[in-house]
Design a protein around this nucleic acid. Structure first.
Lengths: 341, 341
DNA sequence: CATTTGGTTGGGAACGTGCACACACGGTTC
DNA sequence: GAACCGTGTGTGCACGTTCCCAACCAAATG
């Protein structure tokens, strides 16, 4: 406590070594696993660390190991979606927490513009990130493939479109979730079931549509193409798409909307058209974001286990840093019944 | 470890020097400002940098300078609010972008639990963060003061409660915003104006209440304490508070709610009570978050310039890193008229 | 008793950078 | 001719850590 405002300089591994009466090498060994260290030395070093308040200098460590012990959270979304979609928050928070448990800081990087991407690529190739957690909705995004090719461990949230890709990913079971929802709507006596699916170039769009068609076929109901339309996951597109559906098939008695945010738009469109939910038209969403509980009526939806998704993303990434091969993880979804069906 | 893609090791300042036919020192000088370097050498170095694709190694630099050239974004909110409140997103994104322009990475750190705080404090005192951007709603938070005392540059979002504090902050003009809103409600012919303010230990609560009282006094209308209640900024608390107001003062013809999120709750409570908005009761919010535009009816609200707030937070922090004194910045608000008044 | 073995320890070298310092240069001034 | 300039350039060292290697020791083996 010598200088008032100024930060006094931190104790180094050298100070700890002197305090414990051992060499720097021994302290380093205690720090990194404690192999080949006698119990006595171990204890001496640990108490010296406590006494001096020593914290390892990550920069010096990184310099020699070549690792940075930090991870990037890369968001390739256009800004509007980042504002709008509460799911990103849940994901971001989950990843931050899971990494914190391993003492790994998370660097947030926005990669919306080409300029931002260039800067990030420079940063990564300079070795300042051990790995990257990638979040994007239009998962045909080439960035994952590029980074992977460059030898950077990547884990993507959501299934990549290109099936040949060897990039790790963690995703919910879109197809199965869609099946559950459509079966549920059938069980409520609905037969003219519409769908607002995601973009045709996103697996969320393709797989949810596939599940929908599968169950209808199973039930002996053919797919009426007038009941099928796609949106871009934004609220506004859900509203417009539902309007189109109503115009094309006025007898529609249910609609499965491939995201909660779009489902909010669907509710607006239905209200404006004078249809009551769920009496006239049932509405099913997808995600179980906060939007679902806050909607009136509260949305029946398919819960994506975002907390588990983020935890798995971190787990897979760390495994990959440890030398394991890329992996794909698909997590089960769950139907959450509320008021809209 | 040369894996499949094979990351070849990055070129160093030494490679650049050899390529340019100069010494490491000269390259370093070009990198850091370019003083005392001849135009010829400057040009040779720059083209060598381009040719080799050299990127400065931040770890080596940090090791010797003692700076880390990175900034922490500290969130001391309990998790629910982080999920719920879209304003955090805007702030986080704005700060990330503003920092990226200076090539400074942002490290996201959650400081909800005591354990997380300890870990963060260790991280900071180890010198791995040059400064901290702090976001918290209950701004009596001691963390800002603690970090400041420890000599860490801090910029807080929102006015600190303790008036003696020397911590930098950037905030919107709460009091003036509240004045604008109440004047607006008066101009719409309302006279029994209620208020759901923020927690009494937050400046958002105190100052907005002060502005409310001020304008009522100005207009010759006394403050009816039955029309005054406080919430905690959550949607649920807005709903409950509005219910209480209606019970205590059934003749209320307007309510100024100190956050958009709480205003959504107020709309719910009013709808349930059979009051039409804005015919029977006008509702004014605060923030102008996405929630305001998406509500039905769309909320009249006080716009907090979050984009400018984040930009100013970064500006003030960088200035402080450059040796300037802590500063307080108060930004003007703006009334945004929509359907709810 | 000499030698090997295996756990344990210390010391030197390196990682890539910035900074202090020394030095070169041609032109003044004393 | 020596001592000073100011600008431009190269060199050695330090930053705090990990890694490698040699040295040590006690116990086990020949």
């Amino acid at each position: 406590m010598n200088n008032a405002g100024g930060r006094r300089k931190a104790p180094t591994i050298h100070d700890v070594a002197r305090e414990a009466g051992v060499s720097r090498g021994t302290v380093s060994r205690v720090l990194n696993g404690g192999h080949y260290v006698s119990p006595a030395a171990q204890e001496a070093v640990n108490s010296a660390i406590r006494k001096t308040g020593y914290v390892v200098n990550r920069h010096a460590r990184s310099l020699i190991t070549g690792r940075s012990d930090s991870v990037g959270f890369l968001l390739t979304e256009p800004q509007e979606r980042f504002f709008e979609d509460p799911n990103f928050n849940v994901l971001l928070r989950g990843c931050t927490q899971a990494l914190a448990a391993h003492d790994i800081p998370l660097l947030l990087m926005l990669a919306g513009t080409e300029d931002e991407r260039r800067r990030i690529k420079r940063f990564i190739t300079a070795g300042h990130l051990d790995g990257v957690l990638l979040v994007t909705s239009h998962s045909a995004d080439p960035v994952a493939e590029e980074l992977h090719k460059a030898g950077v461990p990547v884990v993507q949230c959501g299934k990549p479109m290109r099936s040949g890709s060897k990039v790790s990913y963690v995703a919910a079971d879109d197809r199965d979730g869609a099946r559950d929802m459509v079966r549920h709507l059938l069980s409520r006596g609905r037969r003219r079931i519409g769908i607002v699916t995601g973009p045709p170039d996103s697996p969320g769009g393709v797989d949810r549509l596939a599940g929908y068609k599968e169950v209808l076929a199973e039930a002996g109901i053919g797919v009426d193409e007038r009941l099928v339309i796609s949106g871009d996951y934004s609220r506004g597109s859900g509203e417009a798409a539902t309007e189109s559906l109503l115009a094309r098939a006025p007898d529609m008695d249910a609609v499965f909307v491939a995201s909660d945010l779009m489902a909010l738009g669907a509710l607006t469109a239905l209200r404006r058209a004078g249809r009551r939910v769920p009496e006239d038209v049932s509405v099913g969403g997808f995600d179980d974001s906060v939007a679902a509980t806050e909607a009136t009526p509260a949305l029946t939806t398919i819960r994506q286990p975002y907390d588990r998704i983020s935890a798995e993303m971190v787990r897979v990434l760390l495994a990959q840093l440890g030398g394991e091969d890329p992996a794909a993880v698909i997590l089960p979804t769950e139907l959450v019944r509320r008021e809209s069906t």
